[in-house]
Design a protein around this nucleic acid. Sequence first.
DNA 1: GTTCCGCATGAATCGATAG
DNA 2: ACTATCGATTCATGCGGAA
Lengths: 294, 294
Amino acid sequence: MEITTHLYLGDSKEQLTQIADNSIDLIVTSPPYADQRKNTYGGIPANEYVEWFLPISQQLLRVLKPTGTFILNIKEKVVNGERSIYVMELILKMRQQGWLWTEEFIWHKKNSYPGKWPNRFRDAWERLLQFNKERTFNMYQEEVMIPVGDWAKTRLKKLSETDRIRDNSKVGSGFGKNISNWIDRDMAYPTNVLHLATECNNKNHSAAFPEELPTWFIKLFTKENDTVLDPFMGSGTTLKVANKMKRNSIGIDIVPEYYEMVYEQLEPTARYLLEPQVKYGKTKSKRSSKVRGK
Amino acid sequence: MEITTHLYLGDSKEQLTQIADNSIDLIVTSPPYADQRKNTYGGIPANEYVEWFLPISQQLLRVLKPTGTFILNIKEKVVNGERSIYVMELILKMRQQGWLWTEEFIWHKKNSYPGKWPNRFRDAWERLLQFNKERTFNMYQEEVMIPVGDWAKTRLKKLSETDRIRDNSKVGSGFGKNISNWIDRDMAYPTNVLHLATECNNKNHSAAFPEELPTWFIKLFTKENDTVLDPFMGSGTTLKVANKMKRNSIGIDIVPEYYEMVYEQLEPTARYLLEPQVKYGKTKSKRSSKVRGK
DNA sequence: GTTCCGCATGAATCGATAG
DNA sequence: ACTATCGATTCATGCGGAA
């Protein structure tokens, strides 16, 4: 099956209306934070942030499949010595829209931005808010398992030899098999705290997250041929990763330079199928000639 | 100067009224979370939690010095597949009371509770909310500096040898001296993410919080002879640590067993100064004959 | 005196069963 | 239908006893 990539240039609130109801398996995005990135996105003031975001989250709720998940990467900034409260207000309002606030992952940034302030330490974490439409949704937990801590390695290996013998001597007891479940367990499920380094090699896009981040959530919440959406694609990290993992992807950005940049990064073999001109709202696809037009 | 410990038995809301205005340098506490600790505290329902806590935080605001800090350890649980929102509502209401929400530290619990569920991973973090009365407050950052990671040590040591040679050859260039400033920097400031394990060696009380936690905040926000308050002292971890660090401390708990336990742990040399009977609301002191009675 | 191993025990969460 | 209780699941940690 062909994997497609669609790009939209324009305001997410408007561009999202072109996407069909219940068609997206996963939304992963890192919208511009309040008062940040003024040069590129205009810098939404903290007190207008919720009002600005709600129409977009309304559209996201519409396009997401009932089994789908929405991961929102966000962190409130410090204003006049205090943490802003727009993230909390946003969660409360989105719940009123019909979203379920199912979980809050912590992204622990190991190499956080340096600096020193008299009454504050470096901010080394961000929120990864998980929202869903329904209480049951797709989650492929085994895809993101991690190696078990050292505590088990030494102990279970010794147990394994002892119980392997026991298993042979007592056929059909079921006990040995039960133990073997533990022996084979080199891997454990992760927690809701993610340890990732921020990437410092991103020059053209200011606040890109590391590839591991969308990779992890795409593994966890989608399977091959599913569709991933990033309504604030920026430099296109989410789309690039999705494509690599054989997921269809849709990206939106209001900044023409980002649109162009992501477009250029797509394989040339896909680009010749498209019209040469890039217009507001126009779309293109990769490894596919399908175009979702206006 | 003598270091004192005062204990109050009873409801925090009432007992706090006995404490003088602007007399506390640091409040560190971990109140019972909603619907938790039913056996000991009765389990405050999530939908009544804010209402229950606000009179207490009102008192805490009164007794805290303008330069003081309030650290609140809390985490919302999952109810019917969704995260509760009472913590967010509490923050919003406390701001209306006059508190400044200055920071949110993350306590990453390395040994979180095990378990597996179809749509959720283990919860491995808790909130450490920092509130203040004023925008400028006491903070002794250098007290909690941490060793720089090994990557820096080895790198700087190699640099040091190279540059020592260079320094010898180029006398007076100032370059060598500049480097040596970096070599001496074995310590760095921490971030707002704390990595600690919960203590599992509970004797009589399930002391959910490890000693390192209050230790860290007491170092950071107080100096010797300052006063630390824990309005939900439980097994008295905060008080024990404060005492060890030569800070005065005040503890309150509504559970007589905890009151007795903390009392018993105080040094006998201090106890003989006090009346033998333990009454509701009565207090005792350590290394001091002062008693704040009713 | 070390090091190693066995063990209990969590501010958990879900689904089923019972009143 | 709606709440209360119970069992099953799972993994890092420190203590105590043993080699």
